[in-house]
């Protein structure tokens, strides 16, 4: 990797958290939690990258590092917005999972949406731009005077998206933005994400545990497991010919509509704790195809053609 023309270039990023001392009266050993372990990823201009993973995969930590809410322990994050774009001097923006919790509950929708302009672009007509934003995300102007507690989850997520878009960022990090919404509202918000991207040409890093959501929006997908990217490819290739046994299990486990009644054949075991990840390949204790080598040797990402990378010792 290390693409100099990319909008975002992440190289070898790791994040280690030191946990509190455990044990009796806190005299136990201090343990470290490696949330991210050597992540490299790039996002092109106008590209939508999906990041999929279960609990403990580090996908949210990755998003928080990209927008600057966390600092990486090691590695490099280069964000290179186009200088001619209006939002160039600001960093990437973020849309969070819990729409109501991520809005200031004491502010009205109008205040929330005019604030970015008041702080960063005092020369523009903030009221006018806020009204335009509301229209863009499909919010009726009658909501302008309401507070986050007086609107529904779907409406609040529209506000959060409008706020993220206010200063026309070139990259928006979306962390599980539809998983708290009802199915019929999810469709409305996913349509909104597609439309906004097509109109503004911005890039998304779209984080989700839901394969179908990621498949729908992304050009390229990275699959994470316990702090590592274990497979990445363009979306069609990844879902048509998954290589890593974990990704295969993930696709297999997800219920599919109208497949009819079926027996579930789950993969065994729990997702291990990132405080004490298994040696070698993190997935080996649960892997049906594990070999002795997988226990000791960490598989590196290998190219299987056309940028389809997978970290597995199997051929």
């Amino acid at each position: 990797m290390g693409d100099r023309s990319a909008l975002l270039d992440i190289a070898g990023v790791s994040k280690v958290y030191e946990t509190d001392r455990g044990g009796f009266l806190g005299f136990g050993r201090r343990r470290s939690l490696r949330a991210l372990d050597g992540i490299s990823l790039s996002v092109g201009r106008g590209e939508v990258i999906g990041v999929v993973g279960e609990s403990g995969s580090g996908k949210s930590t990755l998003g928080r590092i990209i927008v600057g809410l966390e600092k990486p322990t090691s590695g490099r994050v280069d964000y290179r917005p186009s200088p001619e774009r209006p939002g160039a001097r600001l960093g990437p923006q973020m849309v969070f999972q819990n729409p109501i919790g991520s809005l200031n509950r004491r502010q009205t929708i109008r205040q929330i949406l005019t604030e970015p302009f008041r702080v960063h672009a005092p020369e523009v007509d903030a009221e006018r731009r806020a009204a335009d934003l509301m229209e863009e995300v499909g919010l009726s102007s009658r909501f302008a005077g309401r507070r986050p507690s007086e609107i529904s989850g779907g409406q609040a997520q529209r506000v959060a998206i409008a706020r993220a878009l206010a200063l026309q960022p070139e990259l928006v990090v979306c962390d599980e933005p539809v998983s708290a919404l009802d199915v019929s509202i999810q469709a409305q918000i996913l349509n909104l994400f597609s439309r906004v991207q097509a109109q503004s040409g911005c890039s998304y890093l779209f984080i989700s545990h839901d394969l179908q959501v990621v498949e729908r929006l992304s050009h390229r997908v990275a699959v994470m497991y316990l702090g590592r990217i274990i497979e990445t490819a363009d979306t069609a290739t990844l879902f048509a010919s998954p290589r890593h046994p974990y990704l295969r299990a993930l696709i297999e486990s997800a219920p599919v509509l109208s497949a009819g009644k079926r027996r579930f054949h789950p993969i065994k075991g729990e997702i291990p704790s990132p405080v004490a990840p298994p040696s070698g390949c993190h997935f080996h204790p649960r892997c049906p195809l594990a070999m002795p080598r997988c226990k000791v040797e960490k598989p590196m990402l290998r190219d299987f053609g056309n940028g389809h990378l997978a970290a597995c010792h199997l051929d």
Binding site: S152, V183, S184, I185, A187, N191, V213, R216, L257, S258
Partner: peptide
């Protein structure tokens, strides 16, 4: 019909997801 029609698994490759207008309010 609307609920099933808006599901992702039924709309692969479609540019716009069908959606149920309005809300339960």
């Amino acid at each position: 019909i609307g609920l099933l029609g808006s599901l992702l698994g039924r709309n692969r490759g479609k540019a716009e997801l069908p959606q149920i207008p309005g809300s339960i309010d």
